[in-house]
Design a protein around this nucleic acid. Structure first.
Ligand SMILES: [Mn+2]
Ligand SMILES: [Mn+2]
Ligand SMILES: [Zn+2]
Ligand SMILES: [Zn+2]
Lengths: 153, 153
DNA sequence: CCCACCGATGAAAACCTTTTTCAATGGACT
DNA sequence: AGTCCATTGAAAAAGGTTTTCATCGGTGGG
């Protein structure tokens, strides 16, 4: 039970509930909330998959056809700076972005459809201490990602 | 003691001992062992840090000035295919390569100087089972990387 | 030994993605 | 209305990787 409790997959905010939160965050940091930004925010906030800049561009242009690709890059830059999105690294593609979560969590990625889930509760402390003792390194951070096949695939 | 034994940092082949091994592997797969390839192999096999194609290019040209950057890319392609090198992903740079190791191991990377060490013996089985149960995903693979500061830094 | 073949090479061109530049736009505030 | 200035999209530039191509040169067969 104790060990069970240490791992949790996040019951995240529903994807559409993110939109007003992100919009507020942008405004509260002095950024204007413009139509092209809203178009980008809507796509990224609602996606359960990590998306490339060009994928975001293509999808957001459906709602806002005048959008320029540069604005996608610039909006992603701001969303990343505010920790609202994070980059997802995969063997073949490290240029994709997904909505972030608060605190320290890890990614579980479907190798088939790209669907992403977060989880937390790794127990790496003991491992890290051993590696530190063995190597003389001081460990300050870690990446853990699981890859597999999601329920739908 | 049991848990200690499950974690090990690899007492790897000395870096220079890799060179003949890699050269044999290339030959045995039908690739010719040419001077430009040898220059690339020597740099990558002997490096304790992950190197970009252009870093490899610059270093290898010291020994073989006629070398073209394209040959660096092509040689890396073959070394990766033979699992002699692997790509190292970092927050800011996913285009660097380091000598691989046999079997399943993980990377420990110095954030200051880029020095890389391998370790094995994570105990993720229980965590993975829990995440699978919670999410309905089937986990087939994982990435674990530690970042920190090495003894020299 | 000579030749034909073909893998390998480097230069140049093409390509693709990301960043920078720039003039124009249009909110926010007075 | 008028000023300020963040924001925008187009275009250019930059940066990195891949493709193309003519040439080179090692190897194996004649
Ligand atoms: Mn963790
Ligand atoms: Mn592992
Ligand atoms: Zn899936
Ligand atoms: Zn170091």
């Amino acid at each position: 039970m104790v060990s069970r409790a240490r791992t949790s997959t996040s019951a995240r905010m529903s994807t559409s509930a993110r939109i007003p939160v992100w919009e507020d965050a942008l405004r509260q940091h002095g950024y204007r909330l413009t139509a092209p930004r809203q178009a980008v925010v809507e796509i990224v906030a609602e996606s359960g998959r990590a998306l490339n800049p060009t994928e975001i561009y293509d999808r957001a242009r459906v709602a806002y056809p005048r959008l320029g690709l540069v604005t996608v890059y610039r909006t992603l830059e701001k969303l990343e700076e505010l920790h609202l999105v994070q980059r997802v690294h995969r063997p073949d593609n490290c240029q994709a972005f997904i909505a972030g979560v608060e605190g320290h969590q890890h990614l579980l990625i479907c190798q088939n459809c790209g669907r992403v889930q977060y989880f937390s509760g790794d127990q790496l402390e003991a491992l890290i201490q051993r590696v530190e003792a063995d190597t003389g390194y001081q460990v300050h951070d870690h990446w853990l990602q699981l890859f597999g096949k999601c329920g739908e695939c």
